[in-house]
Computed example of a mutant assay.
Amino acid sequence: MENLTPRALGFRMPAEWAPHAATWTAWPYDEEKWLGYLEPVRQEFAAFVNTLARFEPVHLVLHDEESERDARQRLAGPITFHRIPHDDLWLRDSGAIFVTRTPPSGPVEVAAVNWEFNGWGGKYPAQQDNQMPLQMARILGMGLFEAGIVMEGGSLEVNGQGVGLTTRQCLLSPARNPGLDEEALEGYLQQFLGIEHLIWLGNGLEGDHTDGHIDTLTRFASPYTIVTAVCPDPDDPNHRPLQENLEILRSLGGFRIVELPLPKNPLWLDSETRLPLTYANFYIANGAVLVPIYGDPHDEQALEILRPLFPGREVIGLQSRYLITGGGSFHCVTQQQPAGAIWPGQTR
């Protein structure tokens, strides 16, 4: 019922640069999942979490005893450990999405939204991951709104003022919400996240098993600044889709559009699977922006483009050469919990 939705109660999803109480993420486990790269993945992940913990508290989800023992040996700082069985570490997609409201008197209040997660259209097991928002809300004692449709946090980008970005390739995938068209999906996003105007881009990166998540392509750096990935090589399969997205963004008016190159050199998981390397999968934390880099000639150029866009934040490049073998990077593994008082409303 509409009168029970977050929007009706004054909640909406804030921008990522709004103050955080903490970041949620999960520790990598299972050598088989990581195709033999688990140790170098854990090394990169530890560097990421230890850097993040310099700027804000971290809630770290652990699958089992071995994961907890390993994580405790590698990590330091304000980190809270939670033993929760899960399928994989991509909490941007499986975790709760948080929304906030500012009542007439008193502090900002924070609630959570639970979407269904089906492993990016049934590509991977997701039964345990689909329970993650319930677990997060339980731990926090937080009210949880039930949206009832499939949605992944990596498929959405917001500016905190009612504007959102997404791709048709992902949201209109028939393996996610068959029967829901653009108008219906916009209605859900309006009612549950407060997105009043949704900008639809086209397709995503070659090799992206999420079907074109926006957080590998195009990001808000401020309410009116959009950073978007480009590929200048006309022979690269990524060139045309990214150019088409750029043209859509340029046609909007009212936004500053900043071009961010892809890494120069492609990386391949195997002879048929190109990895979706991108600098756009950065994570905006309190006081910092953590950017994936790959030992690529474009790494420093990307950091120099991003630094002036985030005044007051330290823009830090961290290696993601092995983490990207799982299909994502720092934004994909994180979910920000906005600062504010816990809204203890009943599960809806």
Rank of each mutant, 00 (worst) to 15 (best):
G202S: 11
R176H: 15
C231Q: 15
P261G: 05
G187P: 06
S251M: 08
C170E: 03
D211P: 12
D236V: 00
I257C: 04
P241D: 00
T225D: 03
P223G: 05
D236H: 07
E259R: 07
L249T: 06
E183Q: 13
E183D: 12
D233M: 09
R240V: 01
G253Q: 04
Y224M: 07
I214E: 04
H209N: 05
N203C: 11
P237G: 11
P223Y: 09
T218Y: 01
L171H: 10
Y188E: 03
P234D: 03
E196V: 08
E183T: 14
R250E: 08
Y188F: 11
T225S: 06
A184V: 09
D181V: 12
C231R: 07
I257P: 10
I257T: 12
Y224K: 14
L185P: 09
E186P: 00
I195G: 00
I214R: 05
P174L: 10
V230R: 12
I195M: 13
E247M: 11
L249E: 03
I214G: 11
R219N: 12
H197P: 00
T210E: 06
F220W: 07
R240F: 02
D211S: 15
T210W: 09
G253V: 13
P241I: 00
G207R: 06
A221R: 10
E182A: 14
L185A: 01
L180E: 02
E196M: 01
R219W: 12
C170G: 08
S251N: 12
L260S: 12
D208H: 02
A221Q: 05
L217M: 14
L198H: 06
L246W: 02
W200P: 03
L198S: 01
Q191P: 11
R240M: 04
R256S: 09
S222C: 04
P237M: 03
E206T: 10
L180S: 03
D211Q: 13
Q190W: 03
E247G: 09
G187F: 10
N238E: 01
P237E: 05
T216Y: 08
H209S: 14
L180P: 13
V227R: 15
G187C: 11
T225Q: 07
G204E: 04
L180N: 07
P237W: 03
W200E: 09
D181Q: 05
L198M: 15
L193S: 11
R219P: 02
D215K: 00
D211I: 02
L198E: 02
H209F: 04
E206L: 15
R219K: 15
F255A: 14
H209K: 05
E183W: 04
P174N: 07
I248H: 15
S173P: 08
C231P: 12
L242S: 13
T225R: 07
I199V: 14
P232G: 11
I226E: 08
S173Y: 00
E247Q: 10
Q191N: 10
D235K: 02
V258Q: 02
R219I: 14
G254H: 10
T218M: 09
G212K: 15
T210I: 05
V230L: 14
W200T: 13
I195F: 12
R250G: 01
S173W: 00
G254S: 03
E259D: 09
L193M: 13
G204I: 14
L246D: 01
G253P: 04
A221G: 03
G202H: 13
T225N: 13
I199T: 14
N238G: 10
L242W: 11
L246C: 08
